[in-house]
Nucleic acid binder design. Structure first.
Length: 221
DNA sequence: ACATTAAGCTGTA
DNA sequence: TACAGCTTAATGT
Protein backbone atom coordinates (compact mmCIF):
# COMPACT_ATOMS: atom_id res chain seq x y z
CA UNK A 1 0.00 0.00 0.00
CA UNK A 2 1.43 3.35 -1.02
CA UNK A 3 2.28 5.65 1.86
CA UNK A 4 2.20 9.13 0.36
CA UNK A 5 -0.95 9.51 -1.66
CA UNK A 6 -3.27 11.54 0.53
CA UNK A 7 -1.97 14.99 -0.16
CA UNK A 8 -1.98 14.33 -3.90
CA UNK A 9 -5.46 12.92 -4.33
CA UNK A 10 -7.43 15.35 -2.19
CA UNK A 11 -9.08 18.17 -4.14
CA UNK A 12 -8.29 20.79 -1.50
CA UNK A 13 -4.58 20.12 -1.96
CA UNK A 14 -4.70 20.40 -5.75
CA UNK A 15 -2.53 22.99 -7.43
CA UNK A 16 0.03 23.08 -4.66
CA UNK A 17 3.62 22.75 -5.76
CA UNK A 18 5.90 19.91 -4.80
CA UNK A 19 7.44 21.61 -1.77
CA UNK A 20 4.05 22.50 -0.38
CA UNK A 21 2.82 18.96 -0.84
CA UNK A 22 5.88 17.71 0.99
CA UNK A 23 5.16 19.95 3.95
CA UNK A 24 1.60 18.71 4.11
CA UNK A 25 2.70 15.11 3.81
CA UNK A 26 4.87 15.58 6.88
CA UNK A 27 1.74 16.43 8.91
CA UNK A 28 -0.26 13.51 7.60
CA UNK A 29 -0.54 10.26 9.54
CA UNK A 30 -1.38 7.16 7.52
CA UNK A 31 -3.66 4.47 8.83
CA UNK A 32 -5.26 1.34 7.55
CA UNK A 33 -8.67 0.27 8.79
CA UNK A 34 -10.67 -2.90 8.40
CA UNK A 35 -14.24 -2.74 7.16
CA UNK A 36 -16.63 -1.59 9.86
CA UNK A 37 -14.20 0.33 12.06
CA UNK A 38 -15.21 3.67 13.52
CA UNK A 39 -12.50 6.14 12.59
CA UNK A 40 -14.09 9.36 13.81
CA UNK A 41 -16.54 9.87 16.65
CA UNK A 42 -17.22 12.32 19.49
CA UNK A 43 -14.70 10.31 21.51
CA UNK A 44 -11.79 10.42 19.07
CA UNK A 45 -9.20 13.21 19.04
CA UNK A 46 -10.04 16.29 17.01
CA UNK A 47 -8.76 15.72 13.49
CA UNK A 48 -9.46 15.84 9.78
CA UNK A 49 -9.83 12.40 8.21
CA UNK A 50 -9.19 11.78 4.52
CA UNK A 51 -10.21 8.59 2.74
CA UNK A 52 -7.24 7.72 0.51
CA UNK A 53 -8.55 4.36 -0.70
CA UNK A 54 -11.68 2.35 0.02
CA UNK A 55 -14.87 3.97 1.29
CA UNK A 56 -16.52 5.15 4.48
CA UNK A 57 -19.84 6.53 5.64
CA UNK A 58 -20.54 9.53 7.84
CA UNK A 59 -23.61 9.50 10.00
CA UNK A 60 -25.18 10.78 13.17
CA UNK A 61 -27.35 8.91 15.65
CA UNK A 62 -31.06 9.64 15.83
CA UNK A 63 -32.96 10.09 19.07
CA UNK A 64 -33.76 6.38 19.08
CA UNK A 65 -30.11 5.51 18.63
CA UNK A 66 -30.22 4.60 14.95
CA UNK A 67 -27.88 5.68 12.22
CA UNK A 68 -28.85 8.63 10.06
CA UNK A 69 -26.56 8.47 7.07
CA UNK A 70 -25.18 11.84 6.02
CA UNK A 71 -22.89 10.94 3.16
CA UNK A 72 -20.72 8.25 1.63
CA UNK A 73 -17.02 9.07 1.43
CA UNK A 74 -15.07 7.66 -1.50
CA UNK A 75 -11.37 8.01 -2.22
CA UNK A 76 -10.42 11.69 -2.02
CA UNK A 77 -13.31 12.69 0.22
CA UNK A 78 -12.77 13.94 3.73
CA UNK A 79 -14.74 14.66 6.88
CA UNK A 80 -14.29 16.41 10.17
CA UNK A 81 -13.17 19.77 8.82
CA UNK A 82 -15.34 21.59 11.29
CA UNK A 83 -13.03 20.15 13.94
CA UNK A 84 -10.31 22.27 12.36
CA UNK A 85 -12.09 25.46 13.30
CA UNK A 86 -12.52 24.62 16.93
CA UNK A 87 -16.03 23.21 16.73
CA UNK A 88 -16.40 20.34 19.15
CA UNK A 89 -17.69 17.17 17.50
CA UNK A 90 -20.69 15.97 19.50
CA UNK A 91 -22.56 13.84 17.03
CA UNK A 92 -20.57 12.94 13.92
CA UNK A 93 -19.38 9.41 13.22
CA UNK A 94 -17.29 8.08 10.34
CA UNK A 95 -17.07 4.35 9.78
CA UNK A 96 -15.32 2.38 7.05
CA UNK A 97 -17.47 0.48 4.54
CA UNK A 98 -14.51 -1.48 3.18
CA UNK A 99 -10.93 -2.04 4.16
CA UNK A 100 -9.61 1.46 3.68
CA UNK A 101 -6.49 3.58 3.72
CA UNK A 102 -7.15 6.69 5.76
CA UNK A 103 -4.98 9.72 6.44
CA UNK A 104 -5.46 12.03 9.38
CA UNK A 105 -4.23 15.51 10.20
CA UNK A 106 -4.43 16.79 13.76
CA UNK A 107 -6.34 20.01 14.31
CA UNK A 108 -3.47 21.97 15.85
CA UNK A 109 -1.08 21.20 13.01
CA UNK A 110 -3.65 21.93 10.35
CA UNK A 111 -4.34 25.36 11.75
CA UNK A 112 -0.67 26.12 11.28
CA UNK A 113 -0.95 24.91 7.72
CA UNK A 114 -3.93 27.16 6.98
CA UNK A 115 -1.98 30.20 8.10
CA UNK A 116 0.89 29.34 5.78
CA UNK A 117 -1.28 28.39 2.82
CA UNK A 118 -4.39 30.55 2.54
CA UNK A 119 -5.28 28.91 -0.77
CA UNK A 120 -6.01 25.71 1.14
CA UNK A 121 -8.41 27.61 3.38
CA UNK A 122 -10.24 28.92 0.32
CA UNK A 123 -10.64 25.45 -1.13
CA UNK A 124 -11.78 24.13 2.19
CA UNK A 125 -14.37 26.88 2.29
CA UNK A 126 -15.66 26.01 -1.16
CA UNK A 127 -15.77 22.32 -0.38
CA UNK A 128 -17.57 23.06 2.85
CA UNK A 129 -20.14 25.21 1.09
CA UNK A 130 -20.87 22.33 -1.27
CA UNK A 131 -21.26 20.01 1.66
CA UNK A 132 -23.70 22.36 3.34
CA UNK A 133 -25.69 22.61 0.12
CA UNK A 134 -25.95 18.81 -0.02
CA UNK A 135 -27.09 18.65 3.60
CA UNK A 136 -29.71 21.32 2.96
CA UNK A 137 -30.98 19.26 0.08
CA UNK A 138 -31.19 16.19 2.27
CA UNK A 139 -32.95 18.22 4.93
CA UNK A 140 -35.51 19.21 2.32
CA UNK A 141 -35.81 15.56 1.37
CA UNK A 142 -36.55 14.44 4.91
CA UNK A 143 -39.20 17.13 5.23
CA UNK A 144 -41.39 15.39 2.69
CA UNK A 145 -43.85 13.44 4.74
CA UNK A 146 -43.99 10.06 2.99
CA UNK A 147 -41.21 7.67 1.99
CA UNK A 148 -42.62 7.55 -1.55
CA UNK A 149 -42.20 11.30 -1.87
CA UNK A 150 -38.68 11.18 -0.48
CA UNK A 151 -37.68 8.32 -2.77
CA UNK A 152 -39.24 9.97 -5.83
CA UNK A 153 -37.42 13.22 -5.05
CA UNK A 154 -34.15 11.39 -4.56
CA UNK A 155 -34.39 9.51 -7.87
CA UNK A 156 -35.33 12.63 -9.82
CA UNK A 157 -32.49 14.60 -8.25
CA UNK A 158 -30.00 11.87 -9.05
CA UNK A 159 -31.15 11.75 -12.67
CA UNK A 160 -30.87 15.51 -12.88
CA UNK A 161 -27.34 15.51 -11.48
CA UNK A 162 -26.25 12.80 -13.91
CA UNK A 163 -28.25 14.38 -16.73
CA UNK A 164 -29.51 10.93 -17.62
CA UNK A 165 -32.72 9.00 -17.05
CA UNK A 166 -30.68 5.88 -16.39
CA UNK A 167 -29.02 6.07 -13.02
CA UNK A 168 -26.98 3.73 -10.85
CA UNK A 169 -27.68 3.92 -7.15
CA UNK A 170 -24.43 5.08 -5.54
CA UNK A 171 -24.94 3.14 -2.33
CA UNK A 172 -26.36 -0.06 -0.92
CA UNK A 173 -30.10 -0.10 -0.34
CA UNK A 174 -29.42 -0.34 3.37
CA UNK A 175 -27.52 2.92 3.18
CA UNK A 176 -30.05 4.57 0.92
CA UNK A 177 -32.69 3.60 3.46
CA UNK A 178 -30.73 5.27 6.24
CA UNK A 179 -30.14 8.31 4.03
CA UNK A 180 -33.89 8.67 3.43
CA UNK A 181 -34.77 7.92 7.03
CA UNK A 182 -36.43 4.55 6.49
CA UNK A 183 -35.65 0.82 6.32
CA UNK A 184 -34.20 -1.38 3.54
CA UNK A 185 -37.45 -3.35 3.45
CA UNK A 186 -39.52 -0.26 2.74
CA UNK A 187 -37.09 0.93 0.04
CA UNK A 188 -37.28 -2.47 -1.62
CA UNK A 189 -41.08 -2.39 -1.58
CA UNK A 190 -41.39 1.18 -2.83
CA UNK A 191 -39.05 0.50 -5.74
CA UNK A 192 -41.23 -2.45 -6.70
CA UNK A 193 -44.34 -0.30 -6.44
CA UNK A 194 -42.72 2.26 -8.75
CA UNK A 195 -41.85 -0.52 -11.19
CA UNK A 196 -45.38 -1.93 -11.10
CA UNK A 197 -46.80 1.48 -11.88
CA UNK A 198 -44.32 1.74 -14.80
CA UNK A 199 -42.71 4.84 -13.31
CA UNK A 200 -39.28 3.23 -13.42
CA UNK A 201 -37.40 0.18 -14.63
CA UNK A 202 -35.22 -1.52 -12.09
CA UNK A 203 -32.40 -3.94 -12.70
CA UNK A 204 -30.48 -4.38 -9.48
CA UNK A 205 -28.86 -1.01 -8.77
CA UNK A 206 -29.54 0.37 -12.22
CA UNK A 207 -32.76 2.34 -12.42
CA UNK A 208 -34.28 3.92 -15.51
CA UNK A 209 -36.85 6.65 -15.08
CA UNK A 210 -39.71 6.03 -17.48
CA UNK A 211 -42.31 8.51 -16.31
CA UNK A 212 -40.70 11.54 -14.75
CA UNK A 213 -43.88 13.60 -14.88
CA UNK A 214 -45.71 11.07 -12.75
CA UNK A 215 -42.81 10.99 -10.33
CA UNK A 216 -42.85 14.79 -10.15
CA UNK A 217 -46.54 14.71 -9.34
CA UNK A 218 -45.94 12.09 -6.70
CA UNK A 219 -43.29 14.10 -4.95
CA UNK A 220 -45.51 17.19 -4.85
CA UNK A 221 -48.59 15.33 -3.66
C1' DA B 1 -48.32 4.39 6.39
C1' DC B 2 -44.42 2.41 7.99
C1' DA B 3 -41.46 -0.53 11.32
C1' DT B 4 -40.09 -4.89 13.01
C1' DT B 5 -39.16 -9.65 12.91
C1' DA B 6 -38.05 -13.60 10.77
C1' DA B 7 -37.38 -16.40 6.97
C1' DG B 8 -36.14 -17.21 2.18
C1' DC B 9 -33.69 -15.94 -1.97
C1' DT B 10 -29.54 -14.63 -4.98
C1' DG B 11 -25.20 -13.30 -6.46
C1' DT B 12 -20.38 -13.49 -5.38
C1' DA B 13 -15.98 -14.93 -3.37
C1' DT C 1 -20.84 -23.33 0.33
C1' DA C 2 -20.79 -19.49 3.28
C1' DC C 3 -21.85 -14.96 3.51
C1' DA C 4 -23.78 -10.26 2.48
C1' DG C 5 -27.32 -7.95 0.47
C1' DC C 6 -31.85 -7.96 -0.76
C1' DT C 7 -36.74 -9.55 -0.82
C1' DT C 8 -41.10 -11.32 1.03
C1' DA C 9 -44.57 -12.13 4.38
C1' DA C 10 -46.65 -11.76 8.90
C1' DT C 11 -47.53 -8.95 12.49
C1' DG C 12 -47.08 -4.74 15.39
C1' DT C 13 -47.42 0.51 16.16
Amino acid sequence: MSEHICAEIVPIFEQLDHDELLKISSLVVHHHFQKGEVILSPNTPSQLVIVAAGAAKSYQLSASGKEQLLSVLDAGDFEGEKNLFGVQNQELYVETLKNSAVCTIATSEFQQLLENYPSIALKLLKSNAEKIAALEKQNQLLNHDSVEQRLATYLLDLAKIKNNDQIVLPMKLKELASFLGTTPETISRKLHIFSDRALINQERHTITIKDSTALEELKNA
